[in-house]
Write a protein that binds this DNA or RNA. Structure first.
Lengths: 116, 116
DNA sequence: TATACTTATGAACAGTTGTTCATATGTATA
DNA sequence: TATACATATGAACAACTGTTCATAAGTATA
């Protein structure tokens, strides 16, 4: 935590800026941004919220959130790739569900920030 | 939590889908998506990580993450609007810092998901 | 005030993203 | 096998996003 700032010598151009070793791998940061990107779309957020209540078929999700089957299917693909949802075939239907409790936690954390 | 799926009558098209009352306000979901969108860019993620270590001037951030002053300034604007960073003028410089511990928590949660 | 330094901003452009439409794939049943 | 139902996918298009470039705005000092 560094909430107050010291006047000292920050404007010196010979500042060493050694905080750089705190920075995670470039690769990891890309993955992190990509994960957040997945949460950064209303349709996908709605899908995740719908699945928090119960597992659902694709068409049911579409009906619930008011989107086309195609749009939902495309977005489920993205959510699958990010390992946020999993699925299971049941006859003609494909049932989607949340991957794990991480999704709940992420969404809750985001909500907290917004609502505080 | 609903990790197993019952065969019963999910395929019935008269399913009531009452889970809909679980869904937060449309408006709130937009805000949530917008928040995640802010985390969904590598440059902004790098800026946040840089600021986790210590408060920094704009140009220092730019040097640390290898971006232009302009790009950083533009992105800081976005971060400000999302209330993820705050700033303080010190003479010619503007010192940026993280708004609160929420940022740490969000990033940590994301990292956990990726690395698990 | 003139100059140098630091940050912010607008316009333009390229790259990305999400939706729609059409259609393919997969499954169950008559 | 033919039909109907459910889901997935590719192409095209519009909208959005992040960077760059040029420059404006703010501040300190000679």
């Amino acid at each position: 935590m560094a909430s107050e700032y010291e006047i000292t010598d920050i404007s010196s151009d010979s500042e060493d800026l050694t905080g750089i070793d705190q920075m995670p791998d470039e690769e990891l940061l890309y993955e992190l941004a990509d994960l957040f990107k997945v949460f950064g779309d209303t349709t996908r957020i709605k899908i995740l919220y719908a699945l928090m209540d119960k597992d659902l078929r694709v068409q049911d999700i579409a009906d619930l959130i008011g989107a086309t089957q195609s749009a939902v299917s495309h977005q489920l693909r993205t959510l699958k790739q990010a390992r946020l949802v999993k699925f299971q075939r049941e006859g003609k239907n494909v049932i989607y569900s949340l991957s794990d409790d991480h999704v709940h936690t992420m969404l809750a954390q985001g909500m907290t920030h917004i609502c505080e």
